[in-house]
């Protein structure tokens, strides 16, 4: 693939989202990766041209961020968390096992160009530790054997189902999502139910019949006004829909001045 007129149209869509064009640079670099598989020299020139920056300015940004790759990434980017919690619970051994199986080290891609391996810093899923991601979709509680199985499926052309994320897409497809363009198939949104750790506290509270008492959704926002006689709804405000609990409309009086 290459940067086409369509890419240019998409870049301009991104730019239009922001009050200031340069804010579009990060999503545009994701867009470049969606087309090129990495931040290519052509991609840097493309961003520079669209945003009226120098190539050096764009490259300075692109090289700052871990997710912008300087070499082509395979169809699948396998990221093994080896930060403290995941590492201690088995992530270090998992990384070594995958490295041996794939014959590549950190930030390297297999000879057939299909799988890139990296060790990742904390992926914000410590309650599911140890975790790995494939194209940033979570595979939770992975020991080395389970991780090897995931990678074997990838090598065999399969698409293993992540634990909580959506069904696997390719790296480039995911980069398009990161650029802010939704996937064609909306079904993926429903993939990946919340796992037991996410729901642990909520479920426990439900099992024990715990709730927080005293919750009254009609509590006035301004208690000082609540005792005042109710006036008409101020212009433009909305009546609660039928079926929802009645909310107390505020009386139309002067707004108190801000304190500070």
């Amino acid at each position: 693939m290459a940067l086409t007129d369509q890419t240019r149209t998409q870049a301009r869509e991104i730019i239009a989202r922001y009050p200031v064009p340069r804010s579009a640079l990060l999503p545009m670099l994701h867009l470049v990766q969606a087309e090129e598989g990495y931040v290519s020299p052509a991609g840097i020139a493309f961003c520079a041209e669209e945003l009226e920056l120098t190539k050096a300015q764009v490259a300075a940004v692109a090289t700052f961020y871990t997710m912008y790759k300087r070499r082509p990434v395979g169809d699948y980017l396998v990221s093994v968390c080896t930060n403290t919690m995941c590492g201690v619970l088995g992530g270090n051994r998992t990384f070594e096992a995958l490295s041996e199986r794939l014959g590549v080290g950190h930030d390297q891609t297999t000879e057939d160009g299909r799988i890139t391996l990296e060790h990742a810093e904390c992926l914000a899923a410590c309650d599911y530790a140890p975790v790995l991601t494939v194209n940033y979709e979570f595979f939770d509680q992975m020991d080395p054997d389970a991780a090897l199985d995931v990678v074997k499926q990838l090598q065999d052309g399969g698409r293993p189902q992540p634990s909580r994320g959506a069904r696997l897409s390719t790296f480039r497809e995911i980069e398009m999502l990161l650029a802010g363009f939704p996937e064609a198939n909306a079904d993926v949104l429903a993939d990946g139910p919340a796992g037991a750790p996410t729901l642990a506290g909520a479920r426990l509270a439900e099992d024990r019949g715990v709730s927080v008492p005293g919750f009254d959704p009609s509590t006035p926002i301004n208690p000082a006004k609540a005792s005042a006689p109710a006036g008409p709804l101020k212009a433009g405000s909305t009546e609660p829909e039928a079926g929802t609990r009645t909310l107390t409309p505020p009386p139309a009086v002067d707004v108190p001045k801000k304190e500070a």
Partner: peptide
């Protein structure tokens, strides 16, 4: 509202680094 995806930099959790990043700079 715009949903803005970062690109892998813990420092962007620091609020002013986040703002620089959101403006299209190094975080």
């Amino acid at each position: 509202i715009v949903v803005h995806a970062g690109a892998g930099a813990y420092i962007c959790g620091e609020e002013t680094a986040l703002l620089d990043s959101l403006e299209g700079y190094r975080g």
